[in-house]
């Protein structure tokens, strides 16, 4: 099936850098499968002044992300096996126009989904992996962003090569499990597996793992498709309002601007607040505007 690319959308540029949002940031959306989820997400993006996003599978599929096997703890929950099988059956049978209708909702609003955030893991069958790549084409995204592990990356090599679509590895900060993406070495191991493997560098998690995002971006800018902007403290420290943690947000943004790296910068709001998510995402955007406006 051939699917046309998404039509051009307005860019939300700040200092010449395309900004967007990881849709996880909107914590108060309707639940998975609710027909108002996508319209609300679109409204929230427009409110925050952001024209593009990395959309979570839990915001596309009618089952929550927990049903798709990424969270190891969830696999021990009662009813998980059936839930996972139901999710697989849905993926293998849903018509592709389910996804293209979502794409149209974004297009009609002048917005764009650039990345599909799917957390590939060993509970996927090969058929399900293939089908998920087809879903991404129907959504019109450029590629995937994925919280995954190195052993799954090995399994994905023939899929990215066959579908000619990239998967960008997203890091957390688990420094104990060598399977996890958290260090420069874990990224470099995956990047060496295929030219279709890229990086979604979460600069806040990276700092919480006591790594230096500026150094990583300088070294691997040609393989980074986007960054997640959050502010965490070092040593597995907490999420903080932008500017209050240890993450060098300003330095990173100014580096990307100065060097004109083609890296998209996506807000990920996860510090706590009594305000709505869209208010906080907007606040994060304002911080980035100020950071890039300063000399």
């Amino acid at each position: 099936m051939r699917v046309r690319a998404q039509s051009p959308a307005k860019l939300s540029l700040i200092g010449g850098i395309p900004f967007g949002v990881e849709t996880f940031s909107f914590h108060d959306l309707p639940p998975a499968g609710d027909p108002m989820l996508i319209p609300t997400l679109i409204e929230d993006m427009q409110y925050a002044g952001l024209a593009e996003c990395e959309i979570m599978s839990g915001h596309v599929e009618p089952m929550g992300s927990y049903a798709t096997g990424w969270w190891v703890a969830t696999r021990r929950a009662p009813g998980y096996t059936k839930m996972r099988e139901d999710a697989r059956r849905w993926r293998l049978t849903v018509p592709m126009d389910y996804y293209s209708k979502i794409r149209k909702q974004f297009e009609d609003a002048g917005l764009r989904m650039y990345y599909y955030n799917v957390n590939f893991n060993e509970t996927f069958t090969d058929e399900e992996r293939d089908r998920t790549f087809e879903a991404a084409r129907a959504l019109g995204v450029d590629g995937f962003s994925s919280s995954t592990v190195l052993s799954e990356a090995k399994r994905l090599v023939p899929f990215v090569e066959r579908h000619k679509m990239y998967v960008a590895m997203h890091n957390h900060n688990n420094l104990v499990d060598p399977e996890q993406f958290a260090t420069p070495g874990s990224f470099e191991t995956a990047l060496a597996m295929s030219e279709y493997f890229k990086a979604t560098l979460d600069i806040g998690h990276y700092v919480a793992g006591n790594n230096d995002p500026v150094a990583f971006i300088e070294k691997h800018h040609d393989r980074i498709v986007n960054i997640h902007i959050r502010d965490r403290k070092r040593n597995n420290g907490r999420n903080m309002p932008f500017g209050q943690g240890d993450t060098p947000i300003k330095e990173v943004l100014r580096l990307i601007k100065a060097k004109r790296y083609p890296i998209r910068c996506y807000i990920e709001y996860e510090y706590g607040s009594f305000q709505s998510s869209r208010e906080e995402v907007k606040r994060c955007v304002e911080y980035c505007k100020e950071a890039l406006a300063q000399k």
């Binding site: 969270w71 420094l175 104990v176 499990d177 919480a208 965490r232 597995n236 907490r238």
Partner: peptide, 13 residues
């Protein structure tokens, strides 16, 4: 202390 060994680490406070 947080739970740094979790799949997605719980931050420390």
């Amino acid at each position: 202390a947080g739970l740094p060994n979790l799949q997605t680490a719980m931050p420390q406070y």
